[in-house]
Design a protein around this nucleic acid. Structure first.
Length: 103
DNA sequence: CACGTGACCGATT
DNA sequence: AAATCGGCCACGT
């Protein structure tokens, strides 16, 4: 069994705590998880989520406030955020001043 | 054990 | 302001 304090587990806990209507960054999740330089790994964990996961992975974007996914995946994340009440431009840009989650 | 990889980031052009 | 360059570190192979 996987230890409850493994990196993926911590990432899941943190992402689960992001309230609807807000977003945060990979780097911020990494810091809260205790590995400030492991932002890439946060992306890696979210990429490997099981198919029907309820985790709000779409509330995590890059430091520019842009969606890092490309093509159809970008649009999928954009739609999820719009449904969440977050304004997202066609190319996946979000106003962080307005929507950034303050822990 | 030694690479290669990547939903990233900060500093530096 | 935008692109480039190293560095980072958890995971596969």
């Amino acid at each position: 069994m996987e230890a409850v304090d493994s990196f993926p587990h911590r990432v899941w806990q943190i992402v689960a705590a992001i309230p609807a209507g807000y977003v945060t960054t990979y780097g911020e999740v990494a810091r809260l998880a205790g590995s400030p330089r492991a932002a890439r790994q946060v992306g890696g964990v979210l990429r490997r989520l099981p198919e029907g996961s309820t985790l709000p992975w779409f509330r995590v974007v890059n430091r520019h406030g842009a969606i890092s996914l490309t093509g159809p995946d970008l649009q999928r994340q954009r739609q999820a955020l719009l449904a969440d009440g977050v304004q997202v431009s066609g190319n996946g840009q979000i106003d962080m001043q307005k929507y950034r989650w303050r822990y």
